[in-house]
Design a protein around this nucleic acid. Sequence first.
DNA 1: GCTTGTTCAAATGTCAGACATTTATTATTG
DNA 2: CAATAATAAATGTCTGACATTTGAACAAGC
Lengths: 263, 263
Amino acid sequence: MTTSPSVTAPDHAAANSATPSSMEAIATCMAREILAGDVGPGDSFPRELDLCQRFDASRNRLRNALAQLVSAGLLERTAGRGTVVRTMSEWQLLDPLMSHWISGLQGINPDLMREIYAFRLSVEPYVSALAAMKANAQDLARLERAFEGMVKTANDTTRDAHAEYDVAFHEAIYHATHNLVWTQLGSLLRPSISQLIQSTQQAAQQHDHSHHRASLDRHRAVMEAIRLRQPDMARTCAERVLETAARDLGFGQDHPRLASPSY
Amino acid sequence: MTTSPSVTAPDHAAANSATPSSMEAIATCMAREILAGDVGPGDSFPRELDLCQRFDASRNRLRNALAQLVSAGLLERTAGRGTVVRTMSEWQLLDPLMSHWISGLQGINPDLMREIYAFRLSVEPYVSALAAMKANAQDLARLERAFEGMVKTANDTTRDAHAEYDVAFHEAIYHATHNLVWTQLGSLLRPSISQLIQSTQQAAQQHDHSHHRASLDRHRAVMEAIRLRQPDMARTCAERVLETAARDLGFGQDHPRLASPSY
DNA sequence: GCTTGTTCAAATGTCAGACATTTATTATTG
DNA sequence: CAATAATAAATGTCTGACATTTGAACAAGC
């Protein structure tokens, strides 16, 4: 296919809205169509003027939006030739824009999801161990606050608030390393963590409530290990949290023993 | 200070060049002045028209360049107020643009350098262990090719080529994890690795040639551990490579035992 | 005196049209 | 048939104008 109908056709209501979409909204819309796999790598992207017509935007706004996609490695543009979609291995997964676009995207490319999850599976136990070595009182307070929130919202019918606290818990672990890069990595992983949690909750709907209790216990174990400054135990407990989530999603068999390289 | 003279004054020769600077060149120039600390966080940045005059560029090109700095979190712009420099903790260190700007920058902000180096110090032993679990024949070939290059260029008077191979060696380790995110993280760390190597070489100028021989041996040990699929040994050997570099730079005392959280 | 509302200047954001440059295709000519 | 020149189509860039937002100065009213 040379041009994708899902990008060319103005099938989204937002395109014909009275208030013109902001530049970021246009960028997000186009980015998500690529991330979802609606347009395959190597396909040619519509021309600027066509996109202008579709989004009812001036060429200027549209070019700014396209520039964001280029900066994230989703598109490649060359004068005279046009715009093409790059392959997934060239997507800059660590670009902050990317994390923003992935957040809340439902039909994400499964291969991409697997890559990100495999990364998190390998990195989070290690970060937990680092946190156990570096956390101070303030970090522990933040961690505890997130955990208390998880406990309080454990039985909510709509488990939206619970997911929020769950994400905050994981983010607090990255923050406790007291290193800028690790902290920012945690923020970038945030959407994938959030999505993982939602998927896990859907998968666990059919289980009884003991499932949630067990999940809480595993999180508590990580927090306690960090509090007691026991890196090894923090690593093990974090592995257990992730393994359970992996089982719920059916991811487990693809990455055996990847999380414990140290023994 | 409200406006920094180093940004306002056209003291760079490139500004008055006959051929107008490309958009990326302008962005790089401005970004490096921020990264080097010439303009402190919170300071107001010159207006668009002043910058147009300084770089002899149209407002369009300049706005595109500024957009890159905004996307990397270096600047914050709001209509009506102007442009201000953000604090270091808001800089998106994992943005690919950032790694491009840092590459080759001499007078980098020491605090920033320390953060990045501390991250690498904690992450690279772990990545080496992962590589020992996942590397295949092709990865080993790439690793070996880089190492051979290091050996061949060990006695070059200008150790430029040697640094190239050294960077390739480290990048090959990240690549061997067979995970997109780890691989891209390795690419992002590339400039800091390159810079670290150059600094190390300068610091080691005064030492005898046995210094270089020892460095080669430590790298070889990492490669052999990966080849033999011994994650634990790979981790230990990688720690040794980094510790030596840290000692040469005087970084060692700031991050005691950060690299070995598992025991 | 203090608050409130208005006006104004300054900065960034946006638009529209024209032109420049690069690239691929097609026609031409030896 | 091959090499070259003309052409069309796409992105890149410039220019000038206008829109929108912000902060401050200032005046009116309690």
